Simulated scan of single mutants.
Amino acid sequence: MKVVIIEDELAASDNLTYLLHTIDSDIEILKVLDSVKSSVAFLSKPHEAELIFMDIHLADGVSFEIFDRVAINIPVIFATAYNQYTLKAFKFNSIDYLLKPIDQDELSDALQQFKVQNKEQGIADHQVKGLLDLIKTKSKSYKSTFLVNYREEMIPLKTINIAYFRVDTGIVKGITLDNKSYSMDNKLEDIEEELSPEDFHRVNRQFLVNREAIVNIKPYFSGKLVVVVNPVCDERIIVSKAKATEFKDWVGS
C-alpha cells in the first residue's frame, strides 16, 4: 500500500509513519507534506498514492482548501484533535477520521476498512462543504464569564482569571490565578466545550488547565509528564504517555 501523509507537525507525522510500519511493514510512505501549497503541488501531478492521511490544520491554512484546488480521487482519512461533539459532523458526512493522539488499534481498523472498501472512492464536494461549514460553526465565541455561587450571592468569574478547573471529590472547582476556589455547577466535559481550545487544555480526566497557569513541565516515569502550575495544586497533574506529545504541541503552539 502506498500512502501520503499531510501533516505539519513533525512529531505527529513521524509517529504515524512508525505506527503504519508497525502494523504493516509493506506500507510505503510516498511523501510527507506539511502545507496546503505543497499538497496541491504534489497531488496535481501523476502519483501512485492509494490512501491519504490528512491533518486538518496545516502550516498555511485548513486542509479542506486542498479539495478546492485539486481533484482527489482516492480515500482520505483525517487525523484530528477535534472533540467528540465536533466529530459528529465527520460521521454525518461519511468521512473517516482518527482522533489524535492516534491509537494503533484504531489505525489498524481504519486500514482494514480501507482494504475492504472501494479504493477508488474519493471525497465528494458536498462532504467537503459539510466539514467547511463545521469549521465556520466552531469559530464561535467562547465563554468569557461564569456565574458562580459564593457564600450567599452569585458573582461573575472571568474565564481569563481561572488558572485551572479540577474535579475534587466529585465536585468541579475553578481555581483562580489568585488561588481562590469556586464550585462550578457544570460538569468538566461541559466546561471544556465552552472554553477556547487555544487557552485551555484537558490534560486528564480531573484537570482542565489554562496555558497562562503553566509554570513548567517535568518528565515522569513511563513517558508521562507532570504539569506544574501557579497557583500550586495539592494534587499532581499528570499527562499520560499517549497524550504527552499532543500536550507539548499545544503548549508550544
Rank of each mutant, 00 (worst) to 15 (best):
I191C: 04
I191L: 11
I191E: 01
E193F: 08
E193Q: 14
E193L: 13
E194T: 13
E194Y: 10
E194F: 12
L195P: 12
L195W: 08
L195M: 14
S196V: 11
S196L: 07
P197R: 09
P197F: 04
P197L: 12
P197H: 06
E198C: 11
D199F: 10
D199R: 13
D199Y: 11
F200R: 04
F200C: 05
H201F: 15
H201I: 13
H201A: 02
R202S: 07
R202K: 12
V203Q: 01
V203S: 05
V203R: 00
N204F: 06
N204V: 13
R205Q: 15
Q206C: 10
Q206Y: 07
Q206G: 05
F207E: 06
F207L: 11
F207N: 07
L208K: 05
L208G: 06
L208T: 12
V209H: 02
V209E: 04
V209M: 08
V209K: 03
V209L: 13
V209G: 05
N210T: 09
N210H: 14
N210F: 07
R211V: 14
R211F: 15
E212D: 15
E212H: 11
A213P: 11
I214E: 02
I214F: 05
I214W: 02
I214Q: 03
V215C: 02
V215D: 03
V215F: 02
V215N: 01
V215M: 06
N216Y: 01
I217D: 00
K218N: 02
K218D: 00
K218Y: 00
P219M: 07
P219K: 04
P219L: 09
P219G: 03
Y220W: 14
Y220L: 09
F221N: 08
F221D: 07
F221V: 15
S222R: 11
G223S: 06
G223T: 12
G223H: 08
G223W: 10
G223C: 06
K224C: 09
K224T: 11
K224V: 09
L225M: 08
L225W: 03
L225P: 00
V226E: 06
V226T: 08
V226K: 04
V227H: 04
V227Y: 00
V228K: 07
V228Q: 09
V228W: 03
V228R: 07
V229S: 03
V229N: 02
V229R: 00
V229G: 04
N230S: 15
N230D: 13
N230W: 09
P231Q: 09
V232M: 04
V232K: 08
V232N: 06
C233E: 15
C233V: 15
C233T: 14
D234E: 15
D234A: 14
E235I: 13
E235K: 14
E235W: 01
E235A: 07
E235S: 11
R236S: 10
R236V: 15
R236G: 00
R236F: 05
I237S: 03
I237A: 01
I238G: 02
I238V: 15
I238K: 02
I238H: 00
V239H: 08
V239W: 08
V239L: 09
V239E: 03
V239A: 09
V239K: 04
S240F: 05
S240D: 01
S240H: 00
S240C: 00
K241H: 14
K243N: 10
K243G: 04
A244D: 02
A244K: 05
A244Q: 04
